[in-house]
């Protein structure tokens, strides 16, 4: 409840924040505070200096340039969920954002803070990995772009340097397909969430079914911890569908190994296949091929269980993507 003492600086610009990072040992950036403050209150983290970047308005923008969406690092999950631009260009992002934590977490927590924390099961980590996003990082010597595949370097470890700041995340748009209202289609689903509350998943693709799907569809399904609501295991899929056949697929899973990972074997197994329930069920079983032996486990969900649930989540995401109920 009571954090240790620290020095506090409010940064007026990204450059000032970087300068403050350089001039203070053991300083941490404070954005929404939803990853850092809980640790500090339990006295599990005790930085000597906090640099508050919450006031940096230029890190709070959402813009669409051609086939990419650029989301400022300080944009909250709630802002992403509510953004018409995001929903139009890549509704998977909006759906995922709307399913993170609870309403208050979404009001404060930021996409930059979330990926900087680098929880191995983070919703953003898994989804951005599947989407092949890139992260803009700024330091004293200017900006650089890090591909998401290089960004996560271990549990709670990233490619961001000691004196660097994440400034934005750039995500490709999903290509249009004809059966939605002219935009890429994405959803988030939580096995412990309200989507499941008593009714199973309701899914409606306008009655057109799989045969009517064209273009990229993105979906995310997860199992959340019933206490913390942190994701335990999540699976994100983006499938490019033509005439009910999978032209290409990108699949990522989180909560299994120290970082979110692409499920290349599942992608390969899906590619070229008719997206039937049986083919999907067979393809997700290849997930094990992409995972080493060292699966994460805890009191709530052991390694063995995660290994079993991960393909189920990927399967659910795929079923949702093509409009099949999984129950």
């Amino acid at each position: 409840m009571y954090t240790p003492e620290f020095d506090y600086h409010k940064a007026g610009s990204v450059a000032e924040a970087i300068a403050l990072l350089i001039s203070h040992d053991d300083a941490r950036l404070l954005a929404g505070g939803h990853s850092l403050l809980p640790l500090m209150r339990l006295r599990l983290a005790r930085p000597s200096t906090l640099i508050d970047i919450g006031g940096l308005g230029d890190l709070k923008s959402i813009s669409v340039h051609g086939d990419a969406i650029r989301i400022g690092a300080l944009t909250t999950h709630g802002e992403i969920a509510a953004s018409h631009d995001v929903r139009h260009a890549n509704s998977l992002l909006a759906e995922v954002a709307g399913g993170i934590g609870d309403p208050q977490v979404r009001n404060r927590g930021t996409i930059g803070g979330n990926i900087a924390h680098a929880d191995p099961a983070s919703d953003w980590g898994t989804v951005l990995t599947a989407l092949e996003a890139s992260v803009e990082v700024q330091g004293a010597n200017g900006s650089r772009t890090v591909a998401i595949g290089d960004f996560f370097q271990g549990p709670f470890a990233t490619a961001v340097g000691e004196n660097e700041i994440i400034t934005a995340v750039t995500v490709p748009t999903l290509t249009h397909h004809e059966h939605d209202t002219g935009h890429g289609h994405g959803h988030g689903h939580d096995e412990h969430g309200h989507d499941d509350h008593g009714h199973g998943h309701e899914h409606d693709h306008g009655g057109g079914g799989l045969a009517a799907l064209h273009g990229e569809v993105g979906e995310y399904a997860k199992m959340s911890h019933p206490a913390s609501f942190y994701p335990v295991v999540g699976g994100a899929v983006i499938v490019n569908v033509e005439n009910s056949r999978c032209v290409s697929a990108r699949v990522a899973v989180g909560g299994l190994v120290p970082t979110p990972v692409r499920a290349r074997a599942v992608e390969a197994a899906l590619t070229g296949q008719e997206l039937t329930a049986d083919n999907i069920a067979a393809a997700v079983n290849h997930l094990a091929d992409d995972l080493g032996a060292a699966i994460i486990g805890d009191v709530f969900a052991s390694a063995e269980y995660r290994r079993v649930v991960a393909p189920v989540e990927v399967k659910h995401a795929l079923f949702h993507a093509i409009g099949l109920a999984h129950h």
């Binding site: 409010k10 939803h34 209150r41 404060r108």
Partner: peptide, 15 residues
């Protein structure tokens, strides 16, 4: 206007 958990927000952040 946005609901927040005031135990996860420093007073200085509300400045």
């Amino acid at each position: 206007g946005a609901t927040v958990k005031s135990c996860t927000c420093l007073a200085v952040q509300a400045d």
